[in-house]
Design a protein around this nucleic acid. Structure first.
Length: 418
RNA sequence: GUGGGUGUAGCUCAAGGGUAGAGCACUGGAUUGUGGAUCCAGGGGUUGGGGGUUCGAAACCCCUCAUCCACCCCA
């Protein structure tokens, strides 16, 4: 055990895993651009109030999971626990809404929540998120969901379920909440301890309880969809019709609840059975009230976030394009090393990926190393070749070898490998 | 924050009071200058840390730390 180790819930991402990360990120950049999104990068540190205002004072995130501390000047600051509030903050701070009516933005980066780590849950985790600000049309919900499903399609991640629900709006949610409380009041004694607490703080959460007793009671609870106001009902209907039109499979999940206060109307999750208890790989929804809550004009918006660690676990490593090494230079002895070293740099100047062995160790070891690096060709230069004024180029898969004159070595190699 | 599991070689794991082991990986050799396969050899450990019981502890007890899984919650 080394003296220092990373903090609990904080993980190193090592080279063998990074291939999958980079592949996911590059597909994300491509796909999001295809759908008309621009990237935005916001700081990881923000004023604490940004999150308490947006996420909600009574949520778990704000109550017990934020990395909050006092800065040297006395200001309370927080490592961002999620990406939406900072994006909206930037949108307002830079008056983006005044320039064009609506924005499609995406971001990637680390988020921080002080939770107990478990499978698929870390204290520093990474998200790719997308936000569409300034459009109420249900078609926008559909477009965003089509982006989400398209991305996972390109990642070749299968067996995902898109669950959608409507959480209503400030007009209809209080009604629904009251109806829910009226219903659960009859069974209050039969609910679990947690749900008895939820009854007061957030009755919607009872719908999400995993205990069998509560599940049974919740099964007959009033559905949020039956209590939507006319506008929300129409919106939800249009979203479903749009998904049908695009043949995007989904499941209406009346018990789907979101943990952040700012969500309204459409809410959704992309879930899998392959990740244990933390089964959501992506989630999001509408937040039509957030921009206004943060001091801007009434502005509808919708977004989602993808959990990178969870996504990476679902990626089949075989799908990731392997990075190959075209050429490995194997010099035998000091003189050969002196010849090949400048050639190595010349090749790299031509952007030819190449690697060179240690001239002081045996050919066998160098071959072994070349093989491990996945080299397609090995260039061998020993004493015999030096006197002949040639080098041997070995094809590692066919084992065929050819001699190349030293006088034209650089030209021959750069022509062959560029 | 609560509960349970697990900490032994770089990795995966044996040894359940009596000399710390195997497989894989690594290094070298069989092949004085040719990779993957095979065979042989070698290097590597204060058994997570601390304390206790014992003639003797990797093992039993206590504390602590780490880690995993689950609850909670969420990406």
């Amino acid at each position: 055990m080394s003296k220092f180790a990373s903090l609990r819930g904080f993980k190193d991402i090592l080279p063998d895993e990074i291939e999958r990360w980079r592949w996911a990120e590059s597909i994300a950049h491509e796909t999001f651009a295809t759908f008309g999104f621009s990237q935005i990068r916001t700081p990881v540190l923000e004023t604490t109030e940004l999150f308490t205002r947006s996420i909600g004072e009574a949520t778990d995130i704000v109550e017990k999971e934020m990395y909050t501390f006092q800065d040297w000047d006395g200001k309370m600051v927080t490592l961002r626990p999620e990406g939406t509030a900072p994006v909206v903050r930037a949108y307002l701070e830079h008056h983006l809404g005044a320039q064009t009516p609506f924005w499609k933005l995406y971001y990637t980066g680390p988020m921080f929540r002080h939770e107990r780590p478990q499978a698929g849950r870390l204290r520093q985790f990474h998200q790719i998120g997308a936000e569409v600000i300034g459009e109420i049309d249900p078609r926008q919900d559909v477009e965003l969901l089509s982006l989400l499903t398209r991305f996972f399609e390109r990642m070749q991640v299968a067996d995902l379920t898109l669950e959608i629900n409507s959480l209503g709006c400030p007009v209809c949610r209080p009604d629904y909440r009251a109806a829910l409380q009226a219903y659960f009041e009859k069974y209050l004694q039969e609910l679990c301890e947690d749900c008895q607490r939820r009854f007061k703080t957030n009755p919607l959460r009872i719908l999400d309880c995993k205990k069998e007793g509560c599940k049974a009671i919740a099964r007959n609870a009033p559905s949020p969809i039956d209590h939507l106001c006319a506008e929300c009902r129409e919106h939800f209907k249009s979203v479903r019709e749009g998904l049908d039109l695009l043949a995007i499979p989904y499941q209406v999940e009346p018990h789907l609840v979101r943990g952040l206060d700012y969500y309204t109307k459409t809410a959704f999750e992309l879930t899998t059975r392959k990740l244990g208890a933390q089964n959501a790989v992506a989630a999001g929804g509408r937040y039509d009230g957030l921009v206004e809550a943060l001091g801007g004009p009434p502005t509808p918006a919708i977004g989602f976030a993808i959990g990178m660690e969870r996504l990476v676990q679902l990626i089949d490593p075989a799908q990731v394009p392997a990075s190959r090494l075209p050429l490995f230079l194997a010099p035998l002895g000091k003189a050969a090393g002196a010849v090949l070293f400048p050639i190595l740099l010349a090749l790299r100047r031509e952007n030819i990926r190449s690697e060179m062995g240690n001239a002081n160790i045996g050919l066998k070891s160098q071959m072994k190393r070349a093989d491990r690096l996945g080299a397609e060709y090995v260039l061998i230069l020993g004493e015999d070749e030096m006197t002949r004024g040639t080098a041997i180029l070995r094809n590692m898969s066919t084992k065929a070898q050819e001699e190349i004159p030293l006088s034209t070595l650089t030209e021959t190699l750069s022509a062959k490998f560029s």
